[in-house]
């Protein structure tokens, strides 16, 4: 579904991402891990078109994505969340989701006026579902900036889901979360996957990564040093060394 081949991004002399090859198949939950500064977020930004790549290609569902701006990639089905939450702070929770409902299906199925000016019954029902997914049903009229940190994360997750993506890129969604919130998040990730969305998860919190992913790619200094199931990756020598020689990468303190 998503194919990166030879993908590179250099910032001056720094090779943030170096010749990365990665394939994500439809319906999978794939993890992308690595120590700080290993190029995970840069990879997400390359896939979404925030940065232009130095070399290599991004293919999504067979279509070449190189050179396309972020909004076109979204319409092809690539949605994302941000490492540092980026909501529309002075819009309400409901409006945040409303704005994001812009999927290609809508363009053909509905007219101009209802799309831009009306909130059809279907729109309201979908947003109600999303509010339920984010567990924010009671806060729909609250400004996004008034939400607690965890709620903002949930809203951003729901906003990405509102675009009805085929592939959802999650950039450190568990950062700063407690055990309970991580458990909720992994339940939420499964719920979205079960509705037919493929997921690429960039994460430091090993508890989440090891728990939900089926395949993991490990980056270090912009290069992929390992790829396999969570078990395989945990036993990998190169991975253990990358995480400062820790005997168990599961401590996640890298």
């Amino acid at each position: 579904m998503l194919e990166l081949s030879g993908l590179s991004k250099h910032f001056g002399g720094v090779k943030a991402v170096d010749e990365l090859d990665l394939t994500v198949n439809e319906g999978e939950i794939v993890g992308l891990i690595g120590p700080n500064g290993s190029g995970k977020s840069t990879t997400i930004n390359l896939i979404c078109g925030v940065f232009g790549e130095t070399a290599g290609t991004v293919r999504f569902r067979g279509e070449l994505m190189n050179g396309k701006p972020p909004h076109q990639r979204l319409r092809a089905g690539l949605a994302r969340t941000f490492q540092n939450i980026r909501l529309f702070p002075n819009l309400t929770v409901w409006q945040n989701l409303w704005v994001a409902q812009n999927s290609p299906q809508d363009v053909s199925a509905r007219g101009f006026l209802p799309r831009w000016f009306g909130a059809t019954r279907r729109t309201r029902r979908e947003i109600a579902d999303l509010l339920d997914l984010a567990d924010l049903g009671h806060k729909d009229d609250e400004l996004a900036s008034n939400l607690a940190f965890g709620e903002q994360r949930r809203l951003e997750f729901a906003r990405a889901a509102a675009t009805r993506p085929r592939l959802l890129l999650l950039d450190e969604p568990a950062a700063g979360m407690n055990q309970q919130e991580i458990a909720d998040l992994s339940r939420r990730i499964h719920r979205v996957r079960d509705s037919g969305v493929t997921i690429l998860l960039v994460e430091h919190v090993m508890e989440l990564v090891m728990g939900v992913t089926e395949q993991i790619a490990v980056l270090n200094f912009g290069r992929k040093i390992a790829f396999g199931t969570p078990g395989e990756v945990q036993r990998d020598k190169a991975v253990q060394e990358a995480y400062l020689g820790a005997s168990d990468p599961g401590d996640g303190s890298a």
Binding site: V50, H71, L74, R80, F82, V99, A100, N102, A162, T163
Partner: peptide
């Protein structure tokens, strides 16, 4: 950036 990321 967030606006672009939701397809605008």
């Amino acid at each position: 950036l967030a606006a672009q990321s939701v397809g605008l």
